[in-house]
Design a protein around this nucleic acid. Structure first.
Length: 176
DNA sequence: TATCGCATCTAGT
DNA sequence: ACTAGATGCGATA
């Protein structure tokens, strides 16, 4: 796999994205982590990824339209991610508990809270952020958490504001 | 292969 | 309103 950096208007700054011949295989919100990773030199792929993500984050597109390489996630993990991708469209959110129920992976788990927590772990370990809309998964009583420390929750709020789920806040610097 | 750290929910004060 | 308790993953050594 090879890595490329994408400039974004996100509060976390640029993202880095890993691509394979199959599609996007991994990504991260912290662009400076890409320093020592093998860089992608395929200009067509760089242009495609930059264009799709840039258009999406500018609010001019509701679909990323990038192929996903699922090879880094397996079993229940992959099932939950694909359920999320299929069942939660742009501008909608789902709670951790409901996503657990929809995915059908936790049918034999007695307590809903336990399944919901497991889903949270899976979102944290999501190798393909943004493409799999893990930011649309929220807690039952609020926005919930997000990886990446302090900046992470800002990214989540930013993306939800972009999609019209949240009202713009003072630190909103997006395309509205 | 063993251990650790969590992006939650519910119930009981 | 606030506190504590329950579970299964992925990542690391």
């Amino acid at each position: 796999m090879s890595w490329l950096t994408v400039e974004t208007p996100l509060p976390s700054g640029p993202m880095h994205i890993a691509v394979t011949p199959l599609g996007v295989v991994a990504g991260g919100y912290l662009g400076d982590e890409a320093g020592e990773l093998p860089r992608c030199t395929d200009e067509a792929k760089i242009a495609a990824v930059n264009g799709r993500i840039g258009t999406y984050l500018a609010g001019r597109s509701r679909e990323l339209g990038l192929p996903i390489d699922w090879s880094l996630s397996t079993g229940p993990h992959r099932a939950v991610l694909q359920t999320l991708l299929r069942e939660v469209p742009y501008g909608r959110t789902i709670t951790y508990g409901e996503l657990a129920a929809r995915s059908g992976v936790f049918e034999d788990v007695a307590e809903p809270g336990l399944a919901a927590r497991t889903v949270g772990q899976m979102m944290a370990a999501n190798p393909v952020p943004l493409l799999v809309p893990c930011h649309r998964v929220v807690a039952a009583d609020g926005i919930g958490g997000f990886g990446g420390g302090r900046v992470g929750i800002d990214v989540k709020r930013w993306l939800l504001t972009l999609e019209g789920v949240l009202e713009p806040t003072l630190d909103w610097n997006g395309p509205l």
